[in-house]
Every structure is written in C-alpha cells, then in structure tokens.
Amino acid sequence: MARKIKVLVAKPGLDGHDRGAKVIARALRDAGMEVIYTGLRQTPEQIVQTALQEDVDVVAMSILSGAHNHLFPRVMELMRQNKLDDVLVIGGGVIPEDDIPGLKAAGIAAIFTPGTPTSTTIEFIKANLKRSLE
C-alpha cells in the first residue's frame, strides 16, 4: 500500500487572510493527504524547521500581503541549507504574473494565483512529488 502524501500548509508573513490556506488544507485532506497547518504569521525559519521535523513531502505556502518576493526565496534558501532538496515547494496567493519567473528561479515549483481550482493544485502535487510513495 502506498503511503499518504504529507503536506505542510504554511502562512508566511503577517497577513491574516487564511481562507485560501484553510480551504486548500481541507481539499488536500479530502484528497487523501496528511496535512499540517502552521497557522498565521510564520517566519521562514519556523516553516522550514517544521517541514524538516515533520519530514513532509510538500510545503504549500499562501501569502496575500505582497511580501512574497522577500519571503518565498528566503524559505527556499533555508530549505537548501537544511538539505531538503527533495521536498516540493509551491506557493499561492495574490502574486503578480511579473513576479512568478523570479520565484520559480528561486526554486518554487509552481505559483497558484486566485481562481485556481483546488483540483489543479492536487493534481500538480501528485504529478510533481520529488520522493517515492513506496
């Protein structure tokens, strides 16, 4: 039996709009995954340490404050420092198209903007996991 996919849903930065994070957390659960949600106002350090200790397959971050260009690359830097290269990192929120290439270059595998169906995110995760589910 294949094991379940384990996902950390994280809210970096100070914005308190967690509707999207909570909806995605529930949708991932309903898709059969194990989900850990960090709650609001998490620093990149907290997010990466949690990903490390929980040994998750995926980190899914949601941000609506506009601080993504600062916070997402910082998370990626810490992921690398902690040798978490086989963890899939994705992001979502109000993120202008212009910023997406830079975030991808920093290592964020995909950016989901408003209006993305949860099913798209779920399919992306399943298709792009960096570790085996055996």
């Binding site: 659960r29 309903d30 995954m33 194990e34 989900v35 960090t38 709650g39 998490q42 929980e54």
Partner: peptide, 13 residues
C-alpha cells in the same frame, strides 16, 4: 484510510 489534518502541532509553533 483517507486524509487527515494533524492539528496539534499548530499550538507549538
């Protein structure tokens, strides 16, 4: 079987 939300950790962030 099926998914789960592991909610305890949030209190210990």
């Amino acid at each position: 079987t099926g998914g789960a939300i592991l909610g305890d950790r949030i209190r210990m962030m």
